[in-house]
Design a protein around this nucleic acid. Structure first.
Lengths: 251, 251
DNA sequence: GCGTATCGTGCAGTTGCGTGCAATGTCAAT
DNA sequence: ATTGACATTGCACGCAACTGCACGATACGC
């Protein structure tokens, strides 16, 4: 295994589990802890993670704690979320992805709205508890802690039973060439499965996601029917997407 | 668990409950009180909290709101929940029911515990977010808002794939003749399905549930292996159950 | 005022960390 | 084929961090 590959794996572990332990990694790779520590130090120097005694934690804003991430830039996220929530008409069936942005969408749905929401995120389900007229379908599976969504074979199977009007998809990268991408393979597969079951796929892309790419590809950019971006996003950033026939909605 | 993470968790506990108690934290983390006090001292030195005798309070004057304070004193429920949480051994697979009592059980599970928790309650899933070594399996289905649990055919099907060591069941009635019962038919069916997939069924019965009966029957009282009751429950109230060979555990 | 719980400090054992150095492997130029 | 520059890795050593225990001091409840 090449050193570069090893570092990639360390980063993906960090993203998946929200933490890595030096000793555990050394056993997993069959290398000395010295080598692992060297890797961690270098990754920390590049700003990819935060070094702590015993291992490492994710770098700055996206701290392992989902609750803390939720508190980041609530204004930005909720403007996109509010715009997305407006798209839902009474009686429709919509799929709500996991992630902090989609929790905001749930929060922005009118209390009087009568609709059906399908989600694989317990956080979204809890958020919808107080919406009396929204029927919630919870998709089960193995819970991926970092993003608080269920993933895996059971999740994919359950998704096959659904047919929805909208799928509100959260991503970490939208790029005309690289397509829609996210930081975890299992999550990418679930998103792909959801996209196949919805008439319209709406991608929620806050500023830093546009023209970015993450390790795992969900599908081509044209998988998205619409991309919701913030009002002040420059047209130059969205022209490539619009040229593919993807609708661009500004908040 | 890394030291840095532990401090993060302490701060989030502080934010959630409006207070932390050194002794409780030491038990939760499985560490000596010395270590916890050291953490608290360091966090206080960094200005993240205010040290007081017995524990710590938030640094900012903004104490937790009413809802959060209300959650502090569920002394009744948490005594039963704590006793139940003690029964879980590392490596086991346990099913956690919905309901407020089972959310308390999730909260009382040690942070260091490595186990698998199966639940059909998004609230329980969210509560377990901060337990780094607990694998959560979420059972999906149609969400029954009143109890915040998934129910229905999809739920029953998903349960069939599970085999667990324990099932911690919440009920609204335990009666030697009338059996175990609850207030909703769909919920009763789900509880019955869970009970069939666990080696031991542990019923959590706060005082008012004992010798009570609700409209929908889950099964005979002997479906329960053990019933956990509060310490001061009179023997006269549990004799009928004990006569059926059901274990009675007092907190 | 007194008993108990909690606190702070010093100490020791364990674990993790960083640096320097040597061994090995790779690659390119000679 | 040989040589030298370079990267990668493991090992040894000293140092720092973490943790638990013991002891005396302090605060709290009755």
């Amino acid at each position: 295994m090449l050193t570069t590959q090893r570092k990639q794996v360390i980063l993906s572990r960090l993203h998946r589990d929200g933490q890595v332990v030096a000793k555990a990694l050394s056993e997993e790779f069959g290398l000395s802890e010295d080598t692992i520590r060297r890797d961690l130090r270098e990754l920390a120097a590049e700003g990819h993670l935060q070094r702590v005694h015993g291992g490492a934690l994710p770098a700055s804003p996206a701290t392992g704690d989902f609750v803390q991430r939720q508190a980041i830039n609530p204004a930005d996220k909720s403007s996109i979320a509010r715009r997305a929530a407006w798209m839902v008409q009474p009686g429709q069936v919509v799929i709500l992805d996991g992630g902090t942005t989609c929790v905001c969408v749930a929060r922005e749905l009118p209390l009087s709205l009568a609709a059906t929401v399908v989600t694989h995120s317990p956080s979204v389900a809890v958020e919808l508890m107080n919406h009396p007229h929204i029927e919630v379908i919870l998709i089960g599976g193995r819970l991926f802690k970092h993003s608080m969504v269920s993933v895996g074979a059971a999740t994919i199977q359950a998704i096959a039973d659904i047919r929805a009007d909208f799928y509100f998809m959260g991503v970490t990268g939208v790029h005309a060439d690289a397509g829609l991408s996210t930081g975890d393979l299992e999550e990418a597969l679930v998103k792909r499965a959801f996209a196949a079951r919805a008439a319209e796929v709406v991608v929620l892309a806050s500023r830093e996601k546009i023209n970015a790419a993450s390790p795992f590809v969900i599908g081509p950019a044209t998988m998205a029917t619409t991309v919701v971006v913030e009002r002040d996003t420059p047209a130059s950033a969205t022209n490539d997407l619009a040229a593919l026939g993807i609708g661009i909605v500004r908040t």
